[in-house]
Design a protein around this nucleic acid. Structure first.
Lengths: 340, 340
DNA sequence: TTGAAAGCGCTACCAT
DNA sequence: ATGGTAGCGCTTTCAA
């Protein structure tokens, strides 16, 4: 009661006074950093408890030159996959005792400004889930010993680690499933201006089909959605002609759901008229109206590894870049059912 | 180049030296707070520019007793409505020059810990989009002059402002649309353990029906979903008997989509077999496979007002609580089409 | 083991 | 208009 009425927050000094020690001791008692006798530690802790003492993170961070903040850069959170990735990242960040700073960007210039702002808060690390950070600004982070990790980004920056879903394996699984289901003419659906991950999936799909003996020149069609997301997929379906490929692989779940609906509007459905495999395994792809066969991205594992990389690099900032490929798993549903 | 190699970040002191002034002047030049001649200001700004100076927000915040951080408390971001609300909040926070601190909670005790952590960062404000913060911890915020605003929360805490969608108006619009479409037997679908907003929508729906002359004792059925979200709605549909009400109102979009799919599985569809109106107008509700008639929550407006309230209360912390009701709009789609 | 003291980088007050 | 200076609250040597 009296506590909730005080104007000024209680400081380490107050605790020190109450415990009858110096503030240095208080600091040690709480950070368990430096030697202190069990008895006084106990005494200090009790005093802190009684006073309701809370460390001022601003002061702590200023002194240690590092806050307990981790910056996360996202874009288009409305997309179900992105929001579930963010959810996992938040979980993981909190689980490890950090606090997330999150910024949504809409373009590359936002990215630079954001990264700079993060450095101003002396963040303990940065996680980039969208955009391709320019070398220059990343170097600023590196020189300030701020670890940066990219998720599903093109892994080509020095001193930056990457965690990516294994797109190549995913594309191969998709190709094989479609081929084994009897498809011989294929389609690849992506939106123009796609992310690196989408492009990699497409290339790997072609490659896998070639290895299966498919004449990719003749037997693979290319669907380019004008825009990303559900609407892009929907329009692509509407604009496609009657000569539909038998097996279609799609860069992500939103495009796939849109495509499915666009086809449905034209009276065509999967798996009757074509097979369709998506990526991401968003909640929506499992719903009764879609039942999309899709490659599951393990967001929990991705988040876990991202944090591990971050903390690892914090210890050893100049180690060479690492890329971790996280396993993806094909979830069989209606749009390309499991055979045999 | 040389800049990116420096170990230590450049400080106001460096800028002062380069510009040939004191650090106090540097501070003024950048904060435009205190008097300074245009000439020196220009000089300082140029020096800062050349050195690539960036204010250390930790130091600034420590001194000003307030960071440029705004804490946001969320839950279950995977839910499309929640993620779009978060997206709008991030936009608004960034637009006003703040940086968002976001924490996902899974229970009320997380809420207390989070709020406390926010105070440790000396946030400029807190936005609660989930959970009901206990009076005690909110008082800690109040006593530290940290403004708190709740979104779609039960507005009953002193010194806390609230921004809520106008659930009562929404429920009335739903009731009238259903009634005007000829429905005379009604249903209300919500999950048990629903949020305050859901409950308020239900109560208002009953009340509106009464005003329309409906015998709510006899003519309104109650559907209780075991769990929240799509799955809850789906199961509720499966468990319902054959005697379906003509017009059903649903607490949110996810439940509604699930219900629609559950019914679809049983061979029933809207608007042929029943009418259905949801809340939220998530992207999914507009998709071809759902086309859900729904009440649109204006998340951009909600976010805007929340920030305005926050900054307003920062100036005048002890003003009485305010509740703002944001207009909701009925979007007519297939599950209860516009008549006439 | 403990305490004194020197900062971390910035802001704001008070002289000049 | 400008510069000196006293903190903001904490951590961390360095002596004792």
């Amino acid at each position: 009661m009296s506590q909730s009425l005080r104007k000024q927050a209680v400081t380490a000094e107050d605790v020190a006074k109450r415990a009858g020690v110096s503030r240095a001791v208080v600091s040690r008692a709480l950070s368990s950093n430096g030697s202190i006798s069990p008895a006084t530690k106990e005494k200090v802790l009790r005093a802190a408890q009684e006073l309701g003492y809370q460390v001022n993170f601003l002061a702590q961070g200023l002194n240690r030159q590092r806050s307990h903040l981790i910056g996360v850069i996202v874009a288009r959170i409305g997309d179900p996959f992105r929001s579930s990735l963010l959810e996992s990242l938040l979980h993981e960040i909190q689980r490890r005792g950090y606090q997330a700073l999150v910024t949504e960007i809409t373009g590359e210039q936002d990215l630079v400004a954001t990264l700079r702002r993060f450095t101003q808060f002396r963040v303990s690390g940065v996680i980039v889930t969208s955009g391709q950070p320019p070398e220059a600004i990343v170097n600023e982070c590196v020189s300030q010993r701020i670890p940066v990790v990219g998720i599903n980004r093109h892994p080509d920056i020095q001193f930056v680690d990457f965690v990516c879903s294994d797109n190549v394996s995913g594309a191969r699984q998709a190709a094989e499933q479609l081929y084994d289901s009897g498809c011989r003419r294929f389609g690849w659906l992506n939106n123009c201006g796609s992310t690196w991950a989408g492009i990699q999936r497409g290339e790997a799909f072609f490659h896998a089909l070639q290895q299966l003996g498919v004449d990719t020149q003749q037997q693979v069609r290319w669907f380019d959605a004008r825009e990303e997301g559900y609407d892009g997929g929907f329009q692509a379906a509407q604009q496609s002609d009657e000569d539909l490929p038998e097996g279609i692989f799609c860069a992500n779940a939103q495009l796939a759901c849109g495509f499915l609906d666009g086809m449905r509007q034209r009276g065509k459905s999967a798996p009757a008229d074509f097979h369709l495999i998506g990526f991401d395994n968003t909640p929506q792809s499992g719903q009764f109206s879609y039942q999309l066969t899709t490659l599951h991205q393990d967001v929990a594992e991705i988040a876990n590894r991202a944090l591990t990389r971050l903390l690892e690099r914090a210890k050893n900032p100049l180690q060479p870049s690492r890329v971790e490929w996280v396993k993806v798993k094909l979830i069989y549903r209606q749009t390309s059912p499991l055979i045999g």
